[in-house]
Each structure stands twice: as structure tokens, then as C-alpha cells.
């Protein structure tokens, strides 16, 4: 804790609604404690706008501790800003210098349309999950928890993949706006666990088909997603998804439903 303060110039994307045109507006952020978080800095700017009778900047957030995946904007060209493995809510102002200009824009992708200002619609990610991001077990059916041991290294890798917070930064970072990192994380988590094997093939096919149907692009291996992912999700998950896909495509003739 340093007790220092800085002044910034913000250029913030303002867009009143999904269909309305948007543009960058300039605001001053003054006397910002370097111990404040980025979102707290936006709170302060919003308090000022409110008192001036203007509409504050809309942005999504909830947990403010890097776990709910609700926050996220593009800051100076980078999803979640400049710090590695850090969500926007966990980014602190000590990483900015007095006098900086900070450009804040929404995540941009065809499948993630802007709702208002910095808020985007990520419901496509729920659709990808609904297509196969689960193990089909009803409440009450489960066998005793320890009846199926899981090698620790597999369990750890599954946990690495399961740490995805569904924020969409990987999509915003990808030149193709592909959701491969997100999708592969879920496919990997289940593919690595014996409990997930029975549906592994179906899951990979269904989630990929849904990804296409939602308008996400293809993965052409740019690897930007991994760099910008706040949870350090590894692109080795994409390789695993590709293996699962090849195995599945060879084996399955099943018609898979797509959610519209």
C-alpha cells in the first residue's frame, strides 16, 4: 500500500444499445489511488458522471476477485488489460503511470454483441456448454465417490482446465474470434477424468458443432488466447480437443442437435 495517487485520461467506448452506433468519449480520472482496482477507478469516474447528471459507463462485474468471469473489457488493446493472468477486477492502478491515456473498449466478436457501453452478450458461451459441457448424471444416480480412483496428475490437469471462468477474453483476443480455448478447457476437463469418458466423443463433436453454429470462428493457431487468458488456461487443451475430435469423428455417425 503506497498512498500514491495518479491522474489519467480515459477514452471509453460509449454505445447506448445493441443497434445504436458507438464512439469513444474522453473523461478525466483524477486523484486515483494506485491501490485502487481498475473497476474502483471506473466507479470513481462513474460517481463523478452521475453527479454531473450524466449516465455512468455501463460495465459488467460482480465478484471483483477474479472468479466469476463477469468483468472484462479491452484496455489499451488488451483484454483484461496489461497484467498477465489478471482479470480486469484484479488489475490495480499501480500498474499505470501518472498522465497515462487509457483506452477502454468492449470485447469484440461477432458472437458476443455489445449490449451497452462495455457490456457484451456472452450467452453463446452458455449455448456451447449446453450442447455438451456436462456429464449426464442425474441427482441420486452416483456411485460412492471413491469407487473410481483418478490418478492425481490427471485430476490436477483436469483442475487446470476447469479453472476457466468463462469470461470470453480468449475470444476477444483471437483474430478469428474463435472460442476454442474456452471449449477445449471444458472438453479436456471431462476427457481427463474417467467419469467423463463415456460421453467424450459425443461431447467434443457437439460442443464444436455448437461453436460453429453460434458464429465463433475457427482456430488457426495464433495462440493469442493463451497469452490473454486471465486464468492461465493452456493451449495444450486445444491439442487435446483436436485429438478427441479426431477420435470421435472417426467413430461416430450420430446426428448432433444444435441449439438455435
Amino acid at each position: 500500500m503506497s498512498g500514491k495517487t495518479i491522474n489519467l485520461t480515459l477514452k471509453v467506448w460509449r454505445q447506448p444499445g445493441a443497434k445504436a452506433p458507438g464512439r469513444l468519449e474522453t473523461y478525466r480520472a483524477e486523484n486515483i489511488s494506485t491501490d485502487a482496482s481498475f473497476l474502483e477507478m471506473l466507479d470513481i469516474v462513474n460517481e463523478g458522471l452521475t453527479l454531473e447528471g450524466k449516465e455512468p459507463v455501463a460495465f459488467d462485474h460482480d465478484c471483483r476477485e477474479g472468479i466469476c468471469g463477469m468483468c472484462g473489457s479491452v484496455v489499451n488493446g488488451r483484454p483484461h488489460g496489461p497484467e498477465r493472468e489478471t482479470t480486469l477486477c484484479q488489475l490495480h492502478m499501480r500498474h499505470f503511470a501518472d498522465g497515462d491515456t487509457v483506452v477502454i473498449e468492449p470485447f469484440r466478436a461477432r458472437a458476443l454483441p455489445v449490449v451497452k457501453d462495455l457490456v457484451v452478450d456472452r450467452s453463446a458461451l452458455d449455448q456451447v456448454m449446453a450442447a455438451g459441457g456436462f456429464i449426464s448424471v442425474n441427482t441420486g444416480q452416483a456411485p460412492e465417490a471413491n469407487s473410481l480412483p483418478v490418478p492425481k496428475d490427471k485430476a490436477d490437469l483436469a483442475m487446470d482446465a476447469a479453472a476457466c471462468i468463462g469470461c470470453g477474453a480468449c475470444i476477444a483476443a483471437c483474430p478469428n474470434a474463435s472460442a476454442m480455448l474456452f471449449t477445449s478447457a471444458k472438453v479436456s476437463q471431462f476427457a481427463l477424468l474417467p467419469h467423463g469418458r463415456p460421453e467424450a466423443a459425443r461431447r467434443a463433436l457437439a460442443m464444436l458443432a455448437q461453436m460453429d453454429a453460434c458464429g465463433f470462428g475457427n482456430c488457426t493457431n495464433h495462440q493469442e488466447c493463451e497469452v490473454e487468458c486471465p486464468k492461465g488456461i493452456s493451449i495444450s487443451n486445444i491439442a487435446r480437443l483436436n485429438r478427441e475430435f479426431i477420435k470421435a469423428a472417426l467413430g461416430s455417425a450420430e446426428e448432433l442437435p444444435v441449439i438455435k
Binding site: I135, D156, A162
Partner: peptide, 23 residues
Amino acid sequence: SNLIIDHCVAQGIPFAREYGGLL
């Protein structure tokens, strides 16, 4: 409480495990 753990493991929740593969 015990049924919850059974169910969550079956859902694919990657709980911490010992080297022997048990929870």
C-alpha cells in the same frame, strides 16, 4: 452430506486427490 460428494464427483468435479487417486 455424503450423497453430495458422490454426486459432485460423478459430475466431473476435479476435487483434490491423494497420490493413490482417492479423494
